[in-house]
Amino acid sequence: MKVAQKVAIVTGGGGGIGGAIAERLAQLGASVLVADLDPNAAAAIADGINERHPGSALAEGADIADPEQIRRIIERAETEFGPVDLYFANAGIGGAPGLDADDADWDRAFDVNIRAHIRAAQQLVPTWIERGEGYFVSTASAAGLLTQIGSATYAVTKHAAVAFAEWLSVTYGDRGIRVSCLCPMGVETKLMRSGEHSGDPLGVAATRAVISAGEVLQPAQVADIVLDAVDRETFLILPHESVLGMYRQKGSDYDRWLHGMRRYQSSLLENA
């Protein structure tokens, strides 16, 4: 899909990958609503975009796990810019390490990392089908294809995000709905660094696993890759090419892969 003259919503847009995607969308001629739980962060990104591309961005503070707040940001975008063409379900959270996560931790991880995607699609896809076109971009993680050392809530919900994006594409791909699923490894964001400040050995190991597994990219690099994939309508977006090799190894010999991951985890914990 060519994004010029299109209307987009980016959740988790107050910084990191989301902020960079919003900026790149505006550069390519799209109008973008930047949504973030932190309204000041969303406003800062939108203000910066409007300085360079006047009238291209709006900001909304919103908890995108809440269906009513999803509805509100869609209505704001439609009122100010027109029908929404692209939705970047980018907001995400990490999680409590290991089995220490309680029910509240699990509920919040599921709400933000996967139910928010489902709730947005429920509101947008029927309208897109009527129009014959729409684009849903899900930010999952390499953890959704492989796993995440340390955080069970993150690993499980990111697998779910990949699965939902796959289902969405299979079910509606022949009806004009395009879907992409972003699965990066290390990207220099607050989320990537959160584990090393957790005070938990598994949390420290989680961050070290990502950093040591390959190059840590900048958000702007990832945004360029994402928008190129949207232009080509590519489903699986892998900013780190090595992830594909790891994914193939996993599928070709699951037991060997699990054994290797246990050894890798042990080496990280020894130095945590």
Rank of each mutant, 00 (worst) to 15 (best):
K2Y: 11
Q5M: 08
V7A: 01
T11P: 07
T11C: 08
G15H: 11
G16C: 03
G18A: 04
G18F: 04
A20G: 04
R24D: 13
R24Y: 03
L28D: 14
V32Q: 05
L33I: 00
V34D: 02
L37W: 04
N40C: 06
N40V: 11
A41W: 02
A41F: 02
I45S: 03
I45M: 05
A46R: 06
A46K: 07
I49E: 11
H53P: 08
A57G: 13
G61V: 03
A62D: 03
I64C: 00
A65L: 01
A65K: 01
E68H: 13
E68P: 03
R71N: 04
R72Y: 00
R72Q: 05
E75V: 00
E78A: 00
E80S: 09
F81W: 13
D85N: 14
L86I: 15
N90A: 06
G92I: 06
G94Q: 03
G94C: 07
D102N: 15
W106H: 11
D107G: 07
R108Y: 12
F110Y: 11
D111S: 14
R119Q: 06
Q123K: 10
L124E: 06
P126M: 08
T127Y: 03
R131L: 05
F136L: 11
A140W: 01
A140Q: 00
S141M: 01
A143P: 08
G144M: 09
L146D: 01
Q148K: 12
G150I: 06
G150W: 08
G150H: 09
S151H: 05
T153S: 08
T153E: 02
Y154N: 10
A161Y: 02
F164C: 00
A165D: 04
A165E: 02
A165G: 13
L168M: 12
L168A: 10
V170D: 15
V170Y: 12
T171E: 10
I177T: 09
L182M: 02
L182K: 04
M185Y: 02
E188C: 02
T189M: 11
T189F: 08
K190Q: 15
L191A: 13
R193G: 05
G195W: 02
H197A: 13
S198V: 05
S198A: 03
G199I: 10
G199Q: 11
L202F: 06
A209Q: 07
A213F: 04
G214H: 08
Q218Y: 01
Q221G: 01
I225Y: 07
V226H: 11
L227H: 11
A229K: 12
L236K: 05
P239L: 07
H240G: 04
H240L: 10
E241L: 01
E241K: 10
V243I: 15
G245K: 04
M246V: 07
Q249F: 07
K250H: 05
K250T: 05
S252C: 01
Y254A: 09
W257I: 09
M261N: 07
M261I: 09
R262S: 12
R262D: 13
R262E: 15
S267T: 14
L268G: 13
L269N: 07
